[in-house]
């Protein structure tokens, strides 16, 4: 009797996880070998979906965009949030308020803010262009959502939404660094930059490694705000791989063929998960050094 009690307590969690977490993955692992248009029956096609994936220029374009997007987001977000965290780790007046302000974007829905940013960056009557033209900073409207700038604008919005979160994660990591080290460094005449590179970053070690790894996977998997902001357009310039997966199952936007492809979509989802896994593993391999600090 006693032995069954713990099972009663994990049962709801276990059942939900198996039914809605594990089963869908098994479903995808099966149907990626099928041609399944969403109605009627599925036909087994072996590796056809993967052969098609290899030739699918649209998918590889989305993979390329995913790396541009993730790379751009990380290169801007991580240093900025680390610098903010280092500054806010010292006690001074206004620190709590600044921290609350930087963290504010993370409590707001990404999809709602994407709509607002669409209104702001709209080329034809967006607020960004209105202000820039009013103060004569630009002479003609910038096409923020056009082919040239769409990816940059998308990245900037992702940075806006992400900095606060990583700042907080870094702050938590910084708490673990003893203050003596900084005092000793100050006595030896170290400046702020030296303290950052010689004490803060090495001492963050494993925490930094975990945060960066988390940031990489989040950046590679994100597509919600892009879906609302640009829908992957114009001309697939901001199409990312998980958005491409979504479109195979729910072709809602105007610029995709309105065909559901469950089998092919499963293969695309599987391939994308593998790509994320490989990138994470590579990062883990090359960042091992950070772990050996102690």
């Amino acid at each position: 009797m006693r032995k069954t009690q713990p099972y009663a307590f994990i049962m709801p969690s276990l059942l939900l996880t198996l039914a809605l977490g594990v089963y869908p993955i098994l479903w995808a692992l099966r149907y990626m070998f099928y041609d399944y248009p969403g109605y009627g029956s599925a036909t087994y096609v072996g590796l056809d979906n993967f052969a098609r994936l290899m030739r699918d220029a649209e998918y590889w374009n989305s993979v390329k965009n995913t790396f541009i997007y993730a790379g751009g987001k990380l290169v801007l977000t991580l240093p900025l949030s680390l610098i903010l965290a280092v500054i806010l780790n010292k006690a001074f007046r206004g620190r709590q308020l600044l921290r609350a302000i930087y963290f504010l974007p993370t409590i707001i829905s990404a999809s709602v803010m994407s709509i607002v940013f669409f209104i702001i960056f709209n080329a034809y009557n967006g607020m960004a262009n209105q202000f820039l033209m009013k103060y004569h900073l630009i002479s003609s409207p910038i096409n923020w959502l056009g082919a040239d700038y769409a990816m940059l604008t998308t990245i900037l919005i992702a940075v806006w939404g992400g900095v606060g979160n990583y700042m907080l994660l870094f702050l938590a990591g910084l708490q673990g660094i003893p203050n003596d080290l900084y005092e000793a460094a100050s006595l030896d005449g170290a400046n702020a930059a030296q303290k950052l590179f010689k004490i803060t970053i090495p001492m963050l070690g494993p925490v930094l490694q975990m945060i960066v790894m988390y940031a990489i996977t989040v950046a590679l998997k994100g597509y919600e705000s892009i879906m609302v902001f640009t829908g992957g357009g114009p001309y697939g310039k901001t199409d990312v791989m998980y958005l491409y997966v979504f479109k195979q199952f729910f072709p809602i936007s105007a610029d995709t063929a309105s065909m559901q492809r469950f089998g092919y979509g499963s293969a695309v989802g599987f391939a994308s998960a593998i790509i994320v896994g490989v990138v994470t593993a590579l990062y883990f391999y090359f960042s091992r050094k950070m772990d050996k600090i102690y």
Binding site: I25, W27, V245, G265, A273
Partner: peptide, 8 residues
């Protein structure tokens, strides 16, 4: 994460 596949 295999993305939107699980939604189906």
């Amino acid at each position: 994460s295999i993305g939107a596949v699980v939604l189906r």
